[in-house]
């Protein structure tokens, strides 16, 4: 992230004032095209004004379009939105096709898009319909029917073998091992006796 974004406003995607719940309202309220009549940089926007602007205005009667020629200045598009945002963009040396695409983008977005950094790509006003978590939220339903005091539920929570139990285990294992060694010794003695007899 470069320095340019350090002071950028950040936020979550929100629909402006119930848009889409009631009826759809185009959020672009007016758009101003500023251009120069004889500079080369304004060629694309002049092409747009000549060929596409009338159709654009006819298709979007809710958008007020202003055209402002000014001598020897860079061509600029200023879009104003219902939530009070303004988007200013310079369109010098843009081709007519580019201007068409940018005009479409300005019409379909609901605010000054580049001026907001998304913190997340989703947001909800109702994070939970279960309510906040409490220690009793996912309690065992068996507890509802049990007669208290109860030995089973009242017992301390057992997580693993205790030290005593571990010692007993070790002792038993040792005893088994000793027994096995003794048995093998006896076998060896018996065979030697057998050899001497023969």
């Amino acid at each position: 992230m470069s320095n340019k974004y350090l002071f950028l406003n950040s936020g979550f995607p929100r629909a402006p004032f119930g848009l889409g719940i009631g009826r759809y309202v185009c959020q672009l309220q007016r758009i101003t095209l500023k251009f120069c009549k004889n500079r080369g940089g304004s060629r694309g926007i002049r092409g747009f004004i000549e060929h596409d602007l009338v159709n654009y205005a006819r298709e979007n009667p809710g958008v007020v379009v202003y055209v402002k020629p000014r001598r020897h200045r860079q061509p600029v598009i200023v879009a104003e939105y219902l939530n009070g945002d303004n988007q200013w963009m310079e369109v010098a040396n843009y081709s007519r096709e580019d201007v068409v695409k940018w005009m479409e983008l300005l019409r379909t977005q609901f605010h000054n898009g580049p001026s907001l950094r998304w913190r997340k790509l989703w947001h909800t006003e109702f994070p939970s319909i279960q309510g906040p978590w409490t220690p009793f939220t996912f309690r065992n339903p068996m507890l509802n029917l049990v007669q208290l005091p109860n030995k089973e539920f009242g017992a301390a929570v057992k997580l693993g073998p205790t030290a005593t139990e571990q010692l007993v285990e070790l002792f038993k294992a040792q005893q088994l091992a000793d027994k096995a060694v003794n048995d093998s010794c006896q076998n060896v003695e018996e065979t030697s006796v057998h050899v001497q007899r023969t």
Partner: peptide, 22 residues
């Protein structure tokens, strides 16, 4: 104030207000 700008046409704005809200 936006309505004191050079590019301001009140009747067009009123028309667009009506159309915008259908």
């Amino acid at each position: 104030k936006r309505n004191t700008f050079l590019e301001w046409n009140r009747s067009a704005e009123i028309y667009a207000f009506n159309e915008r809200l259908s």
